[in-house]
Design a protein around this nucleic acid. Sequence first.
DNA 1: TATTGTTATACTCTATAACTATA
DNA 2: TATAGTTATAGAGTATAACAATA
Lengths: 148, 148
Amino acid sequence: MTDGQLGAADGLAQLSFLVYGALERRAARHDLSIVATRLLGTLRDRTPSMNELAQLLVLDKSSITGLIDRAERRGLVERVPSTTDRRAMQVALTEKGRSLVSEVATDFEADVSAILDALPKSGRQALSRLVSRVLVANAADRGIDLFP
Amino acid sequence: MTDGQLGAADGLAQLSFLVYGALERRAARHDLSIVATRLLGTLRDRTPSMNELAQLLVLDKSSITGLIDRAERRGLVERVPSTTDRRAMQVALTEKGRSLVSEVATDFEADVSAILDALPKSGRQALSRLVSRVLVANAADRGIDLFP
DNA sequence: TATTGTTATACTCTATAACTATA
DNA sequence: TATAGTTATAGAGTATAACAATA
């Protein structure tokens, strides 16, 4: 049993459920859905239009309207009219939103530490390095800059 | 930028979104939600009660009722009365369910291969090994046997 | 009494289609 | 004409609370 080894697909799927579930639970304690949390996380280093958000979060633009409505009502984000296109809106994190996402991030980091606890330091470093490589390559494939 | 390195938490979160999203899209093509897909995946090597499913999928038992209703209506699973507890039901995969989950798994494996394409073979092996170790440890923590 | 599962219900989130206003 | 965003609407999936049957 301790020697059992999952295939890459099963392993990554289960790891995703584990990580995704941890983030979901942390977010829920702050009354955030996982999509709302991703929104706030995305806005930490971007001020995208509604349309760009739809692409980044892989949601329909009508879903983005509701998502931003709810977040704006809570004072977490704000719509700023674009200066170059009077049809367009840009979405920005408020100070309240920034501090909330930072709280969630801190909590979530503790979860990830616990999840990776079984690995020695060298293993955790190796994993982070491999994961980063995968992400950079895949972000490039989708035309998204991981470090805007 | 190509040298950028994400922290473990950000990296694992983004990797989870990537993997989770891939599975979600594959599942959707077969009219399966990600939870329904997890259900079928779980049933590949188990015949749990409704209650056990609620624990495995981290859902309320009333949600499990609906989930199994929908899957049973499509002929993917079946409820089998427990032989030892007349209150309890056990949920089993049908042949149709087994072949569907196997299709989704095959498709998803192709996605994972593409996602890991940026890594050399040694990197993919190292990643699988690290992930397996993490999962086995975490499953043990939750009292769940990864290889029942 | 406690537990297993179901039901009734309300809520959140999502996409589709039709719309307004700009480009 | 095409695009950015909103609205109206319907559907899927979730949890809470109350319930029946059995332990």
